[in-house]
Design a protein around this nucleic acid. Structure first.
Lengths: 122, 122
DNA sequence: TGAACACATAAACATATGTTCATATATAAT
DNA sequence: ATTATATATGAACATATGTTTATGTGTTCA
């Protein structure tokens, strides 16, 4: 349908399927939600952090344990734990000098497992 | 238990909980699996790509439609569609000059929704 | 045949990100 | 009090990443 073709400044091309575009536009969650969602997945999108989460599926661990497990230095792990903590993916408890980290959330594993399903099936 | 403390070169600290470390080590998936998983989530970890996927939940769309929807230029969208395609998250069909993209996978939405659950509950 | 269009892609660029190094903080032990 | 240890953090650095710009490719239509 020629009538549906509308020029948009930001894009040199014309909209071919205005119906599809407006349907998508209406169903789209808020900008902030999508931003937060991307930020969340970004946290999962690093090998070190994925390994840390994976390790914590088994039991809580202190920073040194994780560093030893992954053969990385303590600082790198500590930095990544901060990222995980900010994303509410891990929580911690202090016991003297030692800080024990554990999963903060029950559906962290569900996100993880859904990802696994995808990579196994392609 | 003092006997459990073992020095590791890569980490200046000593392992405090060798049992926890070895349990985690044994349950850890293969390195390659974890790498692929991180790569997958990395693809979800960008606002533009999240929006594209979100748009495709409704219906297939051509490149220009998506560019107009997101007020971005065609090239940027095309680059991101390539990333999504390489991750087996979208597929396409050609119809003359127009290339229609759609979701490749039924559990893309499940990963997306699991992420939503997390950000809504924190 | 040639112009217009939809899309792809390479190069360049600015920005974001992860690790390391050095150092600070807090607790425990001597 | 001093030392050792577990962790946190800021700065620096190298690398990765997303967007733009320019251009190439393939298809349609006049």
């Amino acid at each position: 349908m020629e009538e549906n073709r509308v020029s948009i400044e930001s894009c040199s091309c014309s909209i071919i399927h205005e119906d599809a575009v407006s349907k998508a536009r209406n169903s789209m969650p808020e900008e902030e939600t999508l931003y937060d969602l991307a930020e969340l997945f970004k946290v999962f999108g690093d090998t070190t952090r994925i390994k840390i989460l994976c390790a914590l599926f088994e039991s809580e661990m202190c920073v040194c344990d994780i560093a030893a497990l992954l053969s990385m230095n303590q600082s790198a792990i500590s930095h990544q734990l901060r990222v995980l903590k900010q994303a509410s993916l891990v929580k911690y408890r202090k016991e003297g000098k030692v800080v024990y980290y554990s999963l903060d959330d029950e559906h962290v594993k569900q996100i993880f497992d859904q990802g696994l399903v995808h990579i196994r099936e392609r």
